[in-house]
Design a binder for these strands. Structure first.
Lengths: 128, 128
DNA sequence: ACAATTGTATTATATACCATAATACACTTA
DNA sequence: TAAGTGTATTATGGTATATAATACAATTGT
């Protein structure tokens, strides 16, 4: 479990999931939390790759998916920027939440739990 | 999306996840629901593979993981049986639920949601 | 105009996982 | 002994992930 400080951001990379997915998640989280001001320019593909000790292609893949999600805006020769639109951030947050909920519902149902018992489980869960 | 009836059980296989995982899930679900009486003998590795149009190795992998989970008991030359212990079924159900909850909590937190808002989302979710 | 810095694309290589296929072995029962 | 169990092994192929090296395209600053 590697922990890497990059400016204001903290990246935690391991091999439990693809690296590019972890990079995506951590940007999403930091944007959703306001840890990265909207409109900020990100590190370049090459620079972030260097910091994270990861291949530039891996960072590029993450940036491209974040752009497809409308969280990033990129311009050749110019750089990559976090969107300036709070609305897009909200939209993405909602859609990711919906997805998380629906995958939870699927899996908890698939082991034979009812809605009420599932809610109880969440209420009892630790939330640090 | 292939739907295959095998005796009392219905298998739905697709390519969204590994086949062996889907076989495992569906056995877990049917055992948890009581769709398979405890102590029942399952189809042999070869026979289930034939029914599902899947390689015997794939079924064997599923059976082996289910045995590690204490849901299946196998005896060479004899066959594979669903555990007779309701306690083991309950234990596994609890542990799978814990895992589902914790992975939901992780992902919903990672997009910046609080516990209360997460519970609201679950309450509003469809549960068919 | 030019150099430096951006994002982007391509090709090759290595590894891991998933699935199939064919075959053989080990054990139990009828 | 034959038939039906689970189990193990080896080979092959496809896909996803990650790295590496290289080149191209667009923008900016000097």
């Amino acid at each position: 479990m590697d922990i890497i400080q990059v400016g204001d951001l903290t990246f935690q990379l391991d091999y439990s999931k693809p690296l590019y997915e972890q990079i995506i998640s951590q940007f999403r989280f930091d944007i959703a939390q306001g840890n990265i001001p909207l409109g900020t320019r990100t590190l370049s593909v090459r620079d972030l790759a260097k910091e994270l000790k990861v291949n530039p292609n891996t960072v590029m893949r993450a940036y491209q998916e974040l752009e497809r999600d409308n969280l990033f805006e990129t311009r050749r020769g110019h750089g990559t920027f976090v969107t300036s639109s709070q609305k897009k951030v909200d939209e993405l947050q909602r859609s990711l939440a919906t997805q998380a909920v629906s995958s939870f519902v699927t899996s908890i149902k698939s082991i034979g739990f009812t809605k009420d018992s599932a809610i109880t489980l969440i209420e009892e869960a630790e939330w640090n």
